[in-house]
Every structure is written in structure tokens, then in C-alpha cells.
């Protein structure tokens, strides 16, 4: 395993050691170890089917909603193993927010979508809720577009707006980590660039892990890039190094488009 070598001032937020993932008899990830630093953007790239989305979903254990899965090894957030018996999965998911591949707003109003999370944790006071909703929408660069139609249904928004709404929704519960699973794959270039700008602003206060199939996007938005292939980590380094002087031949072949 190859790790980045630059002196890093930010602490390690997520650490993965010798992790394996299987779904029934099928092994999807194996022998993974890497560190993710706080207030940095880490991009995960690789050909489809390499397990990068699966890897992402291990950080908030969301794959457990749909199926019986088996995770081995060790994943820690701030030094605490998130697969340990005593951990509260629900609280973990509050701390580790997620934005999905396709925008998935609830069939409710814009306001109710953002207020959904705080309400889960018992926030009832209207003024507090209003404040949280506005704050989250501003952080997601959506406030000015929707402030006059907060009561309208979220399903009437454009795809890009819906995705930023989902980001606002995730931000409203004040997460420490934001997982983004190909957040722009369903969006047009303009909406994509808005989301990319947003990622740059959000990393001031958040740890961001983004899975993307778009290498230019990884180059634009991330500080670190990890390259996955067939369920294994091939190389992880500072993004500029991965894209200029990768140490593994396979990485170079992939980013120059020779396979994948």
C-alpha cells in the first residue's frame, strides 16, 4: 500500500485497515487500507464495478438497509471502530452524511426536506428550524433560488437543484463527514460545475469523500485521489501527483484512458 508523503497538518478523520467486504459468497472488496484526512476532499476513482461505491457506503453502513452484508477488518472514525458492537448506527449516520448518485428528495416540500433531519432529532421550535433550514440552503448555494417557494414540492425542481437540496438536507443535521456517490452523474455540465464549486466551499468545515467516474472532476475538486481496481486499492496519493506522476503503471494507464 502506498500512502501520501507530503506533511499533512489536518488530523486523520477516517482510517481503514485491512478491510474486506462481501455480499453473500461474493467478495467485493479485499485488503483495503487507507487514511482520510479531515477538511480535505478525497476522491475515489476506478472503472465501474471496482467496488468504489460499495466502499463509500461502508462509512455510514447504509448498505445494511437493503441486504445482508459482511464487513471485515477495521474502519475507524476519530479512532472509534464503527463496526464495533456497541456503536449506534443511527447516530453514525447523523455524523456521516451522504449524497446519492441520483437526487432523492422526499415527496415533500423544499422546506420539509431540509427540516426532516433536525425534526428526527427532536427540534420542534419553528424559529430554530427556520434558521437551520436557511443556513443549510445557503451553504448548499440554493437559498436565493428557492427562498420564495419553500412550501412548494421538491419534485418540481430541476435535477441540479434537487441534488443541491439533497446536499442541504444532509448539511442540516451538521455532519462531520459528507459522502458523495457520483453526485453529478445525473446532471448537466452547468449543474455539475455548481456542485463542484460547492464542494470547494464545504471542505472548509467538512471531511468529504467523493466517488466519481469522471477523472477531470476528481482532478478539479479533490486533494487526495485513490484508484481502485477489482476491489483493491492500487494507489492513493495527492491528487496532483496521481494525475502527473503516478507511481504505479496501472494508474497511469487508467487516467490516460488506456483501459477502464
Amino acid at each position: 500500500m502506498l500512502t501520501p508523503t507530503l506533511p499533512e497538518t489536518k488530523p486523520i478523520k477516517l482510517s481503514v485497515r485491512d478491510m474486506a467486504f462481501s455480499y453473500g459468497p461474493k467478495k467485493i472488496l479485499d485488503g483495503l487500507s487507507l487514511d482520510i484526512h479531515a477538511e480535505r476532499v478525497t476522491a475515489i476513482i476506478g472503472p465501474s464495478g471496482c467496488g468504489k461505491s460499495t466502499f463509500l457506503k461502508c462509512f455510514n453502513r447504509i448498505h445494511e438497509v437493503a441486504a445482508d452484508v459482511n464487513v471485515g477488518g477495521d474502519i475507524q472514525i476519530d479512532g472509534v471502530d464503527i463496526y464495533r458492537g456497541g456503536i449506534d448506527v443511527v447516530d453514525l449516520r447523523r455524523r456521516v452524511g451522504m449524497v446519492f448518485q441520483k437526487p432523492n428528495p422526499f415527496p415533500k416540500s423544499i422546506y420539509e426536506n431540509v427540516a426532516f433531519g433536525p425534526r428526527l432529532f427532536g427540534v420542534k421550535d419553528r424559529a430554530t428550524l427556520d434558521g437551520i433550514v436557511e443556513d443549510a440552503l445557503r451553504k448548499a448555494a440554493l437559498w436565493d433560488e428557492v427562498k420564495d417557494r419553500l412550501k412548494e414540492s421538491a419534485s418540481g425542481m430541476s435535477g441540479g437543484q434537487q441534488q443541491r437540496l439533497c446536499i442541504a438536507r444532509a448539511l442540516a443535521v451538521n455532519p462531520e463527514v459528507l459522502l458523495m456517490d457520483e453526485p453529478c452523474s445525473a446532471l448537466d455540465p452547468i449543474a455539475t460545475s455548481k456542485i463542484e464549486d460547492l464542494i470547494g466551499e464545504l471542505k472548509e468545515s467538512l471531511t468529504i469523500v467523493i466517488v466519481t467516474h469522471n477523472m477531470q472532476q476528481a482532478a478539479r475538486v479533490s486533494d487526495y485521489t485513490a484508484f481502485f481496481w477489482l476491489g483493491k486499492l492500487v494507489e492513493m496519493d495527492l491528487t496532483e501527483r496521481i494525475f502527473t506522476t503516478p507511481r504505479v503503471q496501472m494508474t497511469e494507464d487508467y487516467i490516460t484512458g488506456r483501459f477502464g
Binding site: 455510514n60 447504509i62 438497509v65 437493503a66 443511527v90 447516530d91 449516520r93 447523523r94 452524511g97 451522504m98 446519492f100 441520483k102 432523492n104 428528495p105 422526499f106 426532516f116 433531519g117 428526527l120 432529532f121 439533497c166 438536507r169 444532509a170 443535521v173
Partner: peptide, 15 residues
């Protein structure tokens, strides 16, 4: 119902 609804809710910390 789309699975994304359930996942979206649980990703925010819904029980």
C-alpha cells in the same frame, strides 16, 4: 417505492 427514499431517510440518521 424507490429504494433511494428509504436509504435517503436512513442516511440522515432516521431510525
Amino acid at each position: 417505492l424507490p429504494a433511494a427514499l428509504d436509504e435517503g431517510a436512513q442516511a440522515l440518521g432516521s431510525s
